[in-house]
């Protein structure tokens, strides 16, 4: 039995996740920022768009995903910035752990934050606009979309946090690359919410899955290059 102090990949990943989540629950800075921000975005949309009953059908998915995208960016930025500022990143890197475990750990914790925001936004939007959002299909799309968005977002955030123009740079890099996720998610979400045929919903859903698979694989291959100090 090899006696090595190398924690297994899964253990290492979970350790990173646990660290992030406990740190956040102690300070709750990140989460509260994301939640307040989401509410503000929904509020702004209320004034910016004509969200009467008829329009709502076509516009709900777009409003939701825009909210998630912006809140997600906020979360990604802060999550990586905190690491960098507290010097945790260096500490993590010194640990005898596969860098990929660090990356996936960060993805999972960022994903957890995004899910929390989504869990918060959905009922509020549903209440404010009297729309039923608890459709399993919609939840599936939110899951897949968040995965794609966070996978690429964590990778890019790892880069932007080391650049001079840090906060502003992440949305500039992320949004164009995440367009397939956002568009497919909106299309599929709209389909589920309006009770469209599976035949109509399947193409964007399929694209979402393809995107997730491709970019998870690529992120796995490329992560090493992004967190080396």
């Amino acid at each position: 039995m090899p006696t090595t102090s190398h924690p297994s990949f899964i253990h290492a990943t979970l350790a990173v996740v646990r660290k992030d989540l406990t740190a956040e629950f102690r300070s709750r800075e990140l989460l509260s920022a994301m939640l307040v921000f989401s509410l503000l975005v929904i509020l702004i949309f209320n004034f910016a768009l004509e969200l009467n009953v008829k329009e709502r059908q076509s516009v709900t998915a777009g409003v939701l995903w825009t909210t998630f995208a912006f809140a997600g960016t906020l979360g990604l930025n802060r999550s990586m910035a905190v690491e960098k500022d507290r010097g945790c990143l260096d500490g993590l890197l010194l640990a005898p752990v596969d860098r990929a475990a660090i990356y996936f750990g960060k993805v999972i914790s960022n994903l957890a934050f995004m899910f929390m925001v989504e869990a918060f936004v959905l009922p509020i939007y549903a209440a404010l606009y009297n729309v039923n959002l608890f459709h399993p299909g919609l939840l599936l799309v939110i899951l897949l979309g968040s995965i794609g968005y966070t996978t690429v977002g964590t990778l890019l955030a790892s880069m932007t946090v080391q650049a001079r123009t840090r906060d502003v740079l992440l949305p500039i890099l992320l949004f164009p690359v995440a367009i397939p996720v956002l568009l497919s998610a909106v299309k599929a979400s709209t389909g589920f919410l309006n009770g469209a045929d599976m035949a109509e919903i399947w193409p964007p859903l399929n694209l979402l899955i393809v995107y997730d698979l491709i970019f998870t694989a690529v992120a796995f291959m490329v992560f090493d290059n992004v967190v080396e100090e």
Partner: peptide, 19 residues
């Protein structure tokens, strides 16, 4: 890394918009 990510996302963007 970004050139790679960008290059991969472009065809997917095309498909998404076509939808």
């Amino acid at each position: 890394v970004y050139a790679l990510l960008g290059g991969l996302s472009a065809p997917l963007t095309f498909m998404a918009i076509r939808l």
